Amino acid sequence: MCKRSRGFRSCSMGLAPSFMVALGLTAWSAPASAYRPFDGTDAAVAKKGEMEVELQPAGRLRDESGTSLIAPAWVLNYGLSEDWEAVFEGQGQTSLSPSGPTSLTAAGAFLKHVVVPGSLQDKTGPSIATEFGVLLPDSTGNSGVGVSLAGIVSQRWDWGTIHLNAETAITRDHHGDVFVGAIVEGPMTWTVRPVAEIFYENEFGKEETFSGLVGLIYRVRDDLSFDIAVRHALTGGHPVNEIRAGLTFGFPLSFFEGHAMRQAQPIPPR
């Protein structure tokens, strides 16, 4: 899959440290709207000055090449203004069968802009956003730099929410690529809501992918959610099976700025 992926494609941080960092940061969480466990995304951005984190401590991916451990996978969303955010992402991938080294894959840097505020911004009508950026090379292999441009339309009703994604890209292997997908969620008022995603992707001259995902999102509180999902796909006619589990949280960066300023203040003499 060539697109910047909230799904799958040498990390020094392992499973246990990354999970502990995530749990620690949730103590200062603010409401998060980043979107796990999907490959697509929503037409919303992080609040100005806030960081939203999507973290998967570990996941399992099995395709025609064997079984891989995805640990960790992350997406960082920083609110630049009311309707712009910066997005940074990547993941560690280790081949388990056959065994192989850990590499950094699916890395990228993007800008996301809400073009038309709508139901996701507590207004009427659909929310419309665009996202564009650079696909960075993997840490191993011969992949290069790619680019992508996406459009997102989201609409929320009392019964649930739908997000439509369309993306075109030049992949890291310099193939043309198109991606279209849809995410459907249960009511936002439910503590545990069912979710599903389908998408089609065509990397021209290489392979097509048909993918389906089903899962659950458990909202512990407005600023912390956990998710679990299973995904089955056909890529180039070969089956791909995946298990995803992770969490989403956010925090204002002003917390760290205030903490640093307090640490830098001189201690008054007694």
Rank of each mutant, 00 (worst) to 15 (best):
V184D: 05
V214N: 00
F226C: 01
T189Q: 03
E208T: 12
P239H: 14
F199L: 13
G181P: 02
T161P: 04
V214E: 01
H163C: 09
E167W: 00
G186H: 04
V147Y: 14
A196R: 07
D222R: 15
E203S: 10
V184Q: 08
A245Q: 09
N241F: 11
G212Y: 13
N202I: 06
G151C: 09
W157F: 10
V192Q: 04
L247D: 11
F226D: 02
T189C: 03
L224S: 14
D173G: 13
S211L: 03
R244N: 07
W190H: 11
I152T: 01
P187R: 04
T209Q: 09
E242I: 09
E203Y: 04
G212S: 12
V180G: 08
G237Q: 09
H232N: 09
D222C: 01
W190A: 09
A245M: 06
S154E: 07
G205E: 03
V147T: 15
H175W: 03
I162L: 12
Y200Q: 09
G181S: 03
S148N: 15
G176A: 13
E242H: 07
E185D: 08
G236A: 14
G236S: 15
G215D: 06
N165K: 05
F210G: 11
I228N: 11
I217F: 09
S148Y: 03
G212K: 05
A169R: 14
S154G: 15
R221L: 07
G176R: 14
G186L: 00
A150G: 15
V192W: 03
G144P: 01
V220T: 10
G212H: 08
S148I: 03
R219A: 15
G236T: 07
P187W: 01
L149W: 14
I217P: 04
R172H: 00
V214K: 00
I198Q: 04
G186V: 02
I170N: 09
V214M: 09
E207W: 12
I162C: 03
L247V: 11
L216G: 05
A233E: 06
V220A: 13
W159Y: 14
A169H: 07
I152A: 00
G146I: 01
H238A: 15
T209G: 02
A182G: 04
T191S: 05
T191Q: 12
L247N: 13
A169L: 12
D158F: 06
H163G: 06
